[in-house]
């Protein structure tokens, strides 16, 4: 089965063709294309208007790299939420038009569900039940996957997402953008135990929710107070990263214990963080749990994961109809 995936929920305009739910025939993300300066060198920073300019060339590119045409497709999968409604609508409307004119089935995909499926692309033999930690610039969700399509959200962030905290601290320290990879690199040279930044836990012991706003403010407070913070940057970012990683690991392991799962998957842009991977793997393996995570280009927003997720849904006969609307909060 050949599925075309389309993703326009946030910054990236992306299209991909996936065969059989595991073989990526093409995986085009507009920001990469822009680096190649093929389409006017535009990175779709924000708005639906930028998606609109890019969506058709991106889809054409995905099909031609896969060496197929619309008539070869068995279906289309498109992100319908959560995200910016105006942005989502570009992908969704385009999908409806292609599906209608080519008489193809299509299915709407939850962006977060898509992130989980990046792991099935990486490990085709991976099967639920499993626990997934989806961490990115906009999300921090602990989701128990009982079976394909059966989910239970066990914890979420109550304020900032971890990727957002990374970016904001990096910007505050004038380290550049995106903050995640920069802090990851710098932190390797610092002492993660140098400064005891707070680890937030909630009064209600049973909750698995996260909060990263407090540590962000504590780091800013610390930087503002000390003299010459520039000389201690490596220790500061290492200690900050450690606090974030500690909070993520603590709740993830608690959730894994509650559900008795033997597999944890990481997903989302922050899944590329080396300290999170390394420490969670150690802690999980000590408990007989295996950790999975996708390669970097499948961690960040892409359409291959959407196509993969769509493959499983379409195979089960799940279809969306033309009345499907974009949903900001899912």
């Amino acid at each position: 089965m050949l599925v075309l995936g389309i993703e326009t929920s946030c910054d990236e305009t992306a299209a991909s063709v996936v065969k059989g739910g595991k073989e990526i025939l093409s995986n085009i993300v507009a920001s990469q294309v822009a680096i190649h300066r093929k389409f006017w060198g535009v990175v779709p920073e924000l708005a639906s208007r930028k998606h609109l300019e890019l969506i058709n060339p991106i889809i054409s590119e995905a099909l031609s790299r896969a060496e197929i045409g619309f008539s070869d497709l068995d279906g289309i999968a498109v992100t319908y939420g959560p995200g910016l409604v105006g942005a989502l609508l570009v992908g969704l409307s385009t999908t409806k038009a292609i599906a209608y004119s080519n008489n193809l089935p299509f299915v709407g995909i939850n962006h977060l569900e898509g992130h989980i499926y990046a792991n099935y692309l990486e490990y085709p033999s991976l099967k639920p039940p499993l626990l997934s930690l989806i961490v990115s610039g906009g999300h921090s969700d602990l989701v128990y996957v009982k079976d394909h399509g059966i989910y239970e959200v066990m914890g979420r962030t109550r304020d900032d997402a971890p990727g957002e905290a990374f970016d904001k601290i990096a910007k505050f320290l004038k380290l550049g953008y995106p903050g995640g990879p920069i802090i990851d690199e710098l932190a390797k040279k610092g002492n993660p135990k140098a400064i005891p930044f707070p680890r937030v836990s909630f009064k209600a012991k049973e909750t698995l929710d996260f909060s990263f706003s407090g540590v962000k403010t504590a780091v800013i407070d610390y930087i503002t107070k000390i003299q010459d913070p520039g000389s201690r940057i490596q220790d500061i970012v290492a200690s900050f990263q450690e606090a974030v990683v500690d909070m993520l690991i603590k709740n993830t392991l608690r959730a894994a214990k509650m559900k008795g799962v033997k597999r944890i998957v990481l997903a989302g842009g922050v899944a590329a963080n080396s300290r999170l991977r390394e420490r969670l793997r150690e802690e999980a393996e000590a408990r007989g749990i295996r950790l999975f995570y996708p390669r970097e280009e499948l961690c960040t927003d892409n359409a291959a994961m959407i196509a993969c997720c769509g493959h499983y849904k379409l195979k089960e006969g799940i279809r969306s109809d033309l009345s499907l609307n974009a949903v900001a909060n899912l």
Binding site: C10, L46, P82, G83, L84, V85, S136, G137, G138, R156, T157, R158, D159, D160, A161, G163, E164, D167, K168, D209, S213, A328, N329
Partner: peptide, 15 residues
């Protein structure tokens, strides 16, 4: 139960 979280990345959130 509707957590009002930072919209820095999504730009706009609706409640």
């Amino acid at each position: 139960r509707d957590y009002v979280t930072s919209p820095s990345f999504t730009l706009i959130k609706e409640y």
